[in-house]
Nucleic acid binder design. Structure first.
Lengths: 209, 209
DNA sequence: CGGGATAGTTTTGATACGCTACTAGTTCAG
DNA sequence: CTGAACTAGTAGCGTATCAAAACTATCCCG
């Protein structure tokens, strides 16, 4: 037992504090080397965000709330990507204040050099069981932290409370629109963490009385 | 099945890329709010490191390699914690070039306000199975990334190749010293990812021929 | 000794990021 | 129709993080 406890130590239960430390450590390590392509961490995050967000969410404000920063900072980050030629700006027609950004061809290619792919590859090498556990744990943690911060969590349309599946796609009750299968997997700023028990942490059951 | 796929979407397999994104997102979110105590992220990391590292590793250089930064930067970070009164400097007797740092009482108290505790609490609320899976996956990922970077991974003495268990403690073949149970759980700069199959990622089996 | 390696510090400079204040467009009340 | 309140986005400024390079002090090995 002693040998089990120490020699195979890390396979045993680690205290939550150390797990949390590992998380931030990994997050930091993954951001590191960007292969000379040299975007800043914030710029990489923005590029990924605009690649994965749905139409309505591809705005500076949505990115600001996703990234938990101010609109001013988000605006700068986005502008830098625009001048580098990875995003194109397009004014909205419905609301003339609003702008939407789309990835350019160069932006798409840039994503192939995302330094995060190293971490993704490592994750891909994990056992299926661990990967599935990560898939359960990480979103739940993200939602938990976001709500604790009083912020809105981001999630994909398919996991949203406003979503209902239809054959060959689905329906979003939030904007009253049909969604293509592709759109269902995209990030939405008005995501509402749903009635899905799998996404709730056990202790969270207590509700406003 | 469709309802399973979409309504309970997040409990299904997520692609490694999205898992990686969740990881950095969480890491960033956890660093955020520090409750007005206002240490910088790097300073928090240093404080945690010096709280958890073993005697031989409580040096600026060890922290630099742990944090994947330069010694110069590490020196500054540590100095700032010293002037704030959270660390005390002590010159080594064996090697007069070297300095060691210890947490002060104030430093210990500061750790109680670590913003990371929110993430740790959330992790504590996960199911036991998920926690154990995290405990397996995160260290393996950390080692994988570190070796990919050509750097040395950090780990606890109990998981080190140089460690062998004895009753009431253990022995470190690296420094030829007996370790107390407390020391076994501490971080070591000369950690050698061991012969422990649980810490190896499957694909990693291929060795130098 | 003397050369070379190693532990640590300092200085300098770039730049990321947040804060505050501002402009412009929208909505709504009266 | 008009003005107040709100929201989307931008601009400028200051802080402070972080890395690179130059420097000092000590150790070690021949």
């Amino acid at each position: 037992m002693v040998s089990k406890r120490y020699h195979f130590g890390m396979s045993d239960d680690l205290p939550p504090e150390e797990l949390a430390e590992f998380l931030v450590h990994l997050g930091r390590a993954a951001r590191g080397e960007d292969g000379g392509a040299s975007l800043t961490p914030a710029q990489w995050t923005a590029l990924r965000f605009f690649a994965r967000a749905n139409r309505a969410s591809r705005t500076p404000s949505a990115f600001a709330s996703f990234h938990a920063t101010t609109r001013g900072t988000a605006s700068q980050t986005v502008k830098s990507l625009e001048t580098k030629g990875y995003l194109v700006r397009r004014r909205s027609d419905e609301d003339r204040r609003s702008v939407r950004f789309e990835l350019t061809e160069a932006g798409q290619q840039m994503l192939d050099r995302d330094p995060l792919r190293h971490l993704a590859e490592s994750i891909g090498r994990l056992g299926a069981e661990e990967r599935r556990a990560l898939g359960r744990a990480l979103p739940a943690l993200a939602i938990d932290l976001a709500t604790a911060r009083g912020a809105n969590a981001f999630g994909t349309c398919g996991d949203c409370r406003h979503f209902s599946a239809r054959d060959g796609g689905g329906h979003c009750a939030c904007v009253s629109a049909e969604l293509t299968p592709e759109e269902i997997g995209q990030l939405c700023a008005s995501f509402a963490a749903g009635d899905d028990p799998a996404l709730r942490l056990p202790e969270e059951q207590k509700e406003t009385p």
